[in-house]
Design a protein around this nucleic acid. Structure first.
Lengths: 342, 342
DNA sequence: AACGATAACTTTATCGGTTAAGTAATGAGC
DNA sequence: GCTCATTACTTAACCGATAAAGTTATCGTT
């Protein structure tokens, strides 16, 4: 409760009989201050346990060395990995991160961005909520000249800096692998079409199907969110309408897990009754029993690249608008591993 | 780059021909201001896109409505869940969270705590790094009267507020279940003895073994960190020294995964050649092929409880020093599920 | 009609720093 | 020996808010 007053520059100054500005400069190794004084100041600061006040410092310095990070979720393989990489990369440049979680909700996302603006972060890293449609707030941010980089869940409009997996190609490769081996009935539980990843992964799927001359009967594609629940409902819907396909391609890993659960409830087996390939997997996939294949997203690389891009823009070394797509890799379930070696 | 000057209270004041203090009060619904003026101010603020400056506000208000959160890792089932719950709980009380990741490193942890102090957070939530031994910095924090609550990885010394799973009991129950069913050779890959969870889970293991009269040959217990690597090395060491036990109890879930990997490299099967029970699991455990049992930690509840405790201490509604142990639940691998029903 | 209370603001001070603009003392150059 | 730089500081001003302490005009009382 009683907050025993913290040490300030002034406390140090008084004790040393010099001005607080001298102390401030000494601590920042400003050339104005003699080595002797500098040493005395630093020693005194240390012994008093001085901790600079971030608010005061940033209020006057007009720079915060802090970037805001907005993600839809944390407990998710892709995001927890990406976030970790972002923290590590920022730390290398002495930047702090302020992370907020939108919980896939557009209005919360907006509020959080306002909060981050009020904290005067030097830049923003954003991965959109699944239901975000309005992008006016990002225009505002951009017009204000505040560096902004999107990752993974990026908006459609061009002009924003963004880093993602090469969604189209990843989806194409995943589906093509099966299509090329004679699987014809390949269904897709996709993401909402108003999201970039939903649309691009869907288009990759369609391109592969077309390439191998497989048609897509109605009922083979369902659209929804990115969660396990969406996967469960999605598979049930497909099953109801057209029965089980030979292969199921899902827009995210949680969606695949939901489908696995649905299969269990239907008393069907994965992979015997149906193969699953998901966009994105987890480190634990290799231990999973209903073995599913997945297109591995370079989560850490995406986080790292996005952060570096942002820092470059903050430093004025690069201008915004770069769109980077990083390659991923198809990881097949154990039963196909041998075949892959060919 | 060019940061187009942000709107301040003064900008609004000038435009309305009133003082900035009046504007400040109007925005905060201070009774001093007439409803009419209040409305005009709010409207003007809205139309100018005014965003209050968090630094300035907190510098004068001496309260930040922000709490600092320090965790050892994010990409980890327990932590990503706990963190998510912490964010949600804090949001309900309009608190912001500033999260830092120590990456299991004591010195980084210290630096981050200093940074959070410099940000003048109203309280701290901490889960210790695995190699943290010095606790002087926490004493300092406490002496400063700053509310502090530990969760999961809590320090040994009494007097701190803390929330954990009931480690001893959880470990006891997990091991006892197997011991009671005739499994005698039960080994343990434990955590460092200088960590609370390492010691308490170990003591639960020993208590169960003693209760059922099984002795613990030397070489049956190895001590290490909490990562997958530690699990891999741990099992290899046990195997080298005493061969495969019937059951392996691991201090964390990642450690169990490492053990599974080691089993694969040894050409052995889980659970045919050896059962595994781990302290802590993941939502995906039920899909895992080498079916492992685990003691489920109430990650979300721990996060929520810790946050609420902290907020109560910040509000002065409770004083520090409460130690809460939440119950968990043993989740058996599918083959044992039936037996559990008995 | 004088008086205290209230409403609705304004002015001044402060939070803890940083930056810009002095100032006194010393030393170099011619 | 006088000028110009440089060194090592100090003082003043400001960042953008909040809190505390005025200041008027209006109004109900007695």
């Amino acid at each position: 409760m009683s907050s025993p007053k913290r040490i300030t520059l002034n406390d140090i100054a008084l004790r040393l009989g010099i001005s607080k500005v001298a102390v401030s400069k000494a601590l920042r190794d400003h050339p104005d201050i003699s080595p002797a004084t500098r040493a005395r100041v630093k020693q005194m600061a240390e012994s008093l346990g001085y901790v600079p006040n971030y608010m005061a410092r940033n209020l006057s310095a007009r720079k915060t060395l802090t970037v805001g990070l907005v993600v839809p979720k944390i407990a998710h393989h892709f995001f927890s990995q990406a976030i970790e990489a972002i923290y590590e990369t920022a730390e290398e440049s002495n930047y702090e991160i302020i992370l907020t979680v939108s919980r896939e909700d557009e209005s919360r996302e907006r509020r959080q961005i306002k909060t981050l603006l009020s904290m005067r972060v030097d830049g923003l890293l954003v991965s959109l909520a699944q239901n975000t449609r309005r992008t006016d707030i990002f225009k505002e941010v951009r017009d204000h000249g505040l560096p902004l980089v999107f990752f993974d869940r990026v908006p459609d409009e061009p002009g924003y800096s963004a880093v993602t997996t090469d969604d189209h190609r990843g989806a194409y490769e995943s589906v093509a692998w099966f299509a090329a081996r004679g699987y014809k009935k390949i269904a897709h539980i996709g993401g909402y079409r108003h999201t970039g990843i939903g649309r691009r992964r869907d288009s990759g799927y369609r391109a592969a199907m077309e390439k191998y001359g497989h048609d897509i009967p109605s009922g083979f594609v369902v659209e929804g969110g990115f969660s396990e629940e969406d996967g469960y409902r999605g598979l049930m819907k497909i099953y109801d309408r057209v029965g089980l396909p030979e292969v199921l391609f899902t827009v995210t890993f949680p969606v695949a897990l939901g489908a696995v659960r649905a299969m269990q409830d239907l008393g069907k087996s994965v992979p015997d009754d149906m193969q699953i390939v998901s966009f994105g997997g987890s480190a634990y996939s290799r231990y999973m029993k209903p073995a599913i294949s997945y297109f591995d997203q370079p989560a850490r690389e995406i986080g790292k690249t996005a952060t570096n891009m942002l820092l470059e823009e903050i430093g004025g070394r690069q201008k915004s608008g770069r769109f980077v797509e990083l390659p991923g890799k198809l990881i097949l379930s154990p039963e196909f591993q041998k075949e892959l070696k060919k």
